[in-house]
Structure formats: structure tokens, C-alpha cells
Simulated scan of single mutants.
Amino acid sequence: MSTRDSLDAAIDKAVKHYSSLFVLPSFKKALLFLALLCVTGGLFSTVTLFPSFKGVIYGLALGFSIFLVDLFADYVTSRLILKRDPVYDLRRTMGLSLFSWLFWFLFVFIGVALALAFGDLRLWAKLCLLGFSAIIILRLIVFNSTTFASNKKILVSSLLQPFLCLAPFLFLWSVEYNLPIGLWLFLAYSPIIGLISSFIFTSALNSVGKKSLGVPSLSLFKAFLLNWIAGLTAPFEGFLEKLGREQDVEISILKFAASKPEAIIVVPSVHPGPFKNVGSSLLSSMLKEALEKEFDCTACVPHGLLGHEVDLTSQRQNQKVIKEVVAAANFSASETKASPLVKVSDGTATAYCQIFGKSAFLS
């Protein structure tokens, strides 16, 4: 397979599956899943360690507490801290918290198992704190990778939910035994460790993009997210403008007219891509609309035999092409003869050809 075919196949495959990225449940389902996870997780962990009526009370109190606290943290994050961010509405913020809890409860349950095995409740607390530290790193990486918010807002959004949700655990532990000074020291330096770890990870990711394309990987990914979620083209097209190169574009125009234009066929040497509304993806329909408006006729813009290597980079380039095509189409049709339509097929592919004057139209 040639490099061009390989590139086209890779981009087409990515476009085919891009809509399946970051699939999240609806708001109501996310809320229900979060409530079930928090309540059942809190209840299971405490009842397992305290198999009594007291354990049930502890478990229900812990489960409902972390659910309500998490809901408050998600609301503050989406509606106040990241209120202007097009990615993090309440549903997506809650989806991140839901995933965080799945990860956190894994550590909690391991701690419960170790506490039962060794008869030491402190192991439950230690594993819970280890999970707390892990989701700080997780949230820092996710927010750094998916939002253009300031570093301050990213930091607050990353730390708010874990610290608030840790409070019910701390209260429960303080009821059963005295909290050691080491725990408070851990709470102090865990955000620092999280910051350093996430910085190392995101820097490694960005270096890949810088080496291959000259732009940070995560910045490119954020721009893609803004287009996919909010339909914004400018951020992603800004990168395409930097990565693209200028070249002449050939436009073939076939015009049918009598006293006035009846139909126009335009075949630009531009590929409608790369995806969605980015670059020249909508150029065919935009050209058709502009020509029909200008000449009051039927316009057709078929797909040329081209690949993604000739995608336009931005809406600005689209307007350049449209302006030139409309101007070039303002000519008088001079040929009066046309050949019969010829069809050729080998069983796999079919080709049509018709000659208009000195021009051949192949399809």
C-alpha cells in the first residue's frame, strides 16, 4: 500500500470511529450510577469491617455523604470554576468523578481485604489514601489534557473533589481511632507528588507531538475536542494552518447555458476533508450554494480523484477557493457539440466519459 493510500485509510478509520470517543451516559444515568457506586461502596466497605448494626449505620452515612459531597464538588467545578469551558458541563464533570470513584474504590476494597487479613484497620485507611493520591494524579492528567482553562483552574478542579470526598472518610476514621500525624503530612505532600507526576506524564506526551509535528500533542488533542464537542473550527484549523503548505489548486468548470446558465459542474482539485466541519469538509456544499446563488442555476460539485493530502486547512482557505471559482465561472459557454455518453466496466469498477467540445468529462 502506498503512503498516500495508507494516510487516507488511517484518516478515514479515525473519522469513522471518532464519534465513539468519550461516550458517557446521560445525566440521569450518570447521577444514578454515581449514587449507587458511592452508597454501595461505602456500605460494603464498612459492613465488611464492622459486621453489625453500627457498621450499617456507618456505611450508609459514609455512602450518602461522599455522594452528596461529590455532587456539590462537581457542581462547583462545572458551574463556577469551569463555567466557560465548552467541554466540562455537569454531565461530563460527573462522568469524570464516576470514573474516579471506580478507581478509588478499587484501592478502598483492597484496603478492606488487607485489614481483614491482618486485623489492622489502618491498612484500610492507608490504601484509601493511596487511592486518593492516585485520583489526584488522574484528574490532573485528564484536566490538563482536555481543557484550555488556566493552570490555576485546572489545579483547583483537580483537587476539589478528592479533598472534599476524603472528609467523610477522615471523620469515620477519627471516630474509631486517633488519626496519626503521618496522615496529615500525607495530605500535605500528596498534591505536590500529583503535580510532579502529572507534569512528567503530560510532558512526555507533548514531546511526541513536538518531535513528529512540531506542536504539543495535548494542545492538538484539546483543539480536536473543542471541534468534536462544541463544533469550533478555529482552534484545530489553527494547527492545520501551521502544518499545511501552499500550492496551486486546479479547478475544472463545465457550464451548460443558453440565454442564461442552466447548470454548472465544478470539480476542484481539493479533497473534502479531513472530517466534520474542519478544513474543506463542507467545501462541496459551500461551492454549490455559492454558485447557485450567484448564477441562479443548478450546480454540482462531484468528488475528485483525490485524497486527504489535498484537504484545505481552514475556512479562510475555503473562502479563497469559493471566491475564485465564482469569478472563474462567469464566462459564456461557447461549445455546441457533445458526444454520446460512453460506459466502460471491468466488473469491479465502472467509468463514464462524455466529450463536450474540447473537454472530456470522466466519472
Rank of each mutant, 00 (worst) to 15 (best):
S219H: 08
K16E: 14
I135P: 03
F118H: 12
A35W: 10
V267A: 09
L172I: 13
F361H: 12
A61R: 09
S207P: 05
A113Q: 05
A61E: 12
N330V: 00
A258Q: 15
L71M: 10
K255G: 06
L213D: 06
L49S: 07
H17F: 11
N178P: 11
L183M: 05
E241A: 08
K126V: 14
Q315R: 15
A333L: 10
E289D: 15
G42V: 00
N318F: 15
A117G: 09
L226R: 12
Y189W: 14
Y58A: 04
L24F: 11
T233Y: 03
Y88N: 09
K126M: 12
A349K: 11
G273Y: 02
L21E: 03
A14W: 14
G194P: 03
T48C: 13
L220G: 01
M1I: 05
N178I: 12
S157E: 11
V87G: 04
S252M: 06
K13L: 05
V56F: 10
R316W: 06
F356G: 12
A117F: 11
T147F: 04
W124K: 08
K83Y: 14
V301H: 01
C353R: 12
T298F: 12
S78P: 11
F22I: 07
S2W: 02
E292M: 14
V267D: 00
C297I: 00
S97F: 00
S203D: 14
V56I: 07
K210E: 15
A328G: 01
S133Y: 00
L98T: 02
S334R: 14
I136D: 13
D8V: 01
S157L: 12
F236C: 01
S269N: 15
L195A: 10
P162C: 07
K255F: 04
S20N: 11
S20M: 07
S158G: 09
D248A: 15
A257N: 07
M286D: 13
N151Y: 05
S78W: 05
D248T: 09
V175P: 10
L172F: 13
A30V: 04
L213I: 03
N178G: 14
